[in-house]
């Protein structure tokens, strides 16, 4: 998995490619831990993400909880497979998906 960060003042866009799973989720978690400090607008670009597992969902949920306190968060370019997982797990009600 590769993580690409684009910073524009207080807006942060994180583009993921590959798989967000048990092995890679800790990497994303580590990145977010450092990067979210003064972010008010967080965007996840899933255009190149193949799939997400429950470990990835954990990280997303934890990021959403953080952003609920300091700004907004959205997920864009979600593929069909991941959308299905979001729907099954109820994440589609929690996340802002565009």
């Amino acid at each position: 998995m590769t993580i690409q960060k684009t910073r524009n003042e207080t807006a942060l866009t994180i583009a993921l490619s590959g798989r967000l799973d048990t092995v890679t989720a800790p990497e994303l978690e580590a990145v977010l831990k450092d990067a979210l400090a003064d972010v008010s607008e967080l965007t996840f670009d899933f255009e190149k993400l193949d799939y997400i597992s429950s470990a990835g969902l954990r990280v997303l949920l934890s990021a959403q909880k953080t952003m609920n306190r300091q700004g907004t968060m959205k997920v864009i370019h979600v593929n069909e497979m991941i959308l299905e997982i979001f729907e099954v797990t109820g994440f589609s009600d929690i996340l802002t998906i565009e």
């Binding site: 597992s53 429950s54 470990a55 949920l61 909880k65 609920n68 797990t89 109820g90 929690i94």
Partner: peptide, 20 residues
């Protein structure tokens, strides 16, 4: 099975794997 209708704040981190 976890409750998939809770809000982000109320949902525990984890517990989704087997359900998924």
């Amino acid at each position: 099975d976890p409750d998939v209708h809770l809000s982000a704040e109320d949902r525990p981190i984890g517990g989704l794997g087997i359900f998924l």
